[in-house]
């Protein structure tokens, strides 16, 4: 038994597990920012008074949300990079990292949009009417009155999206990014002797990353709740 632990410990010398997890955290961080920005714009489009804008926003959400993430990432790498030869960085690994961030952001923006839209639905219609009644146009009333309240109502669904995003960063392996699931594949291949420990390491690693996110969103949704 003690030799199993020694074998397991040697795994960490052979493979840089922490570096791989760090890549996942970085992917999460940048893709979260990207999907938040894009998702907010999409949500604005979906509640806009202009029909063509609503149509565009709904089209994006319905197409992207119903496409597997793997397809989006593989398309970016094989279609946009390999076929169209568009380089995002002269550094080989950095190039794939950036493609993975963009793919993750594009995909999760659809979910962010729907989370924010559900937040907009928590804001009573009277708030928008009062904003219009004092002469605010669509964008000012969205920015000053509706979205600040909608975002607070959307913290929980946004937290769920962030958790999904964190775990979905493992799909970046499909875009040739050396993150934890890519590393796990190597570990399984070269260290079948500790295969159970490999699975447990990756699983526990994700739990350790994701649990604080859940706790944080629960705390924040209480803290920032709009009192009516």
């Amino acid at each position: 038994m003690s030799s199993y632990f020694a074998d397991f410990a040697s795994l960490f010398e052979q493979f840089d597990v922490f570096q791989a997890f760090w890549v996942n955290i970085q992917l999460t961080f940048f893709a979260a920012i990207g999907s938040m920005l894009l998702g907010t714009v999409l949500a604005l489009m979906r509640v806009s008074p202009i029909a063509s804008m609503r149509w565009l926003g709904a089209g994006y959400v319905n197409i992207i949300r119903n496409t597997p993430l793997t397809i989006i990432l593989v398309f970016l790498v094989l279609g946009v990079w390999s076929q169209l030869q568009i380089n995002l960085s002269s550094d080989f690994n950095q190039n794939f990292f950036r493609y993975a961030v963009i793919g993750l952001a594009i995909y999760h923006a659809a979910f962010v949009c729907e989370a924010i839209r559900s937040g907009v639905n928590t804001v009573p219609v009277g708030q928008a009417e009062a904003a219009r009644a004092i002469g605010l146009g669509f964008l000012p009333s969205a920015r000053l009155i509706i979205f600040p309240q909608a975002l607070r109502g959307a913290i929980t669904p946004l937290g769920n999206t962030l958790i999904a995003l964190t775990k979905n960063t493992t799909v970046a392996a499909a875009a040739s990014v050396t993150e934890i699931s890519a590393l796990m594949k190597s570990m399984i291949e070269f260290r079948p002797d500790v295969i159970i420990a490999v699975f447990l390491t990756v699983a526990i690693g994700f739990v350790l990353i994701v649990v604080p996110v859940g706790l944080l969103t629960t705390w924040a949704s209480r803290k920032f709740a709009v009192v009516r």
Partner: peptide, 15 residues
């Protein structure tokens, strides 16, 4: 609308 003041049944103050 800025020139027309409106008071609602449900107040609608910005929460």
């Amino acid at each position: 609308r800025a020139d027309v003041g409106m008071v609602f049944q449900s107040f609608n103050l910005f929460a």
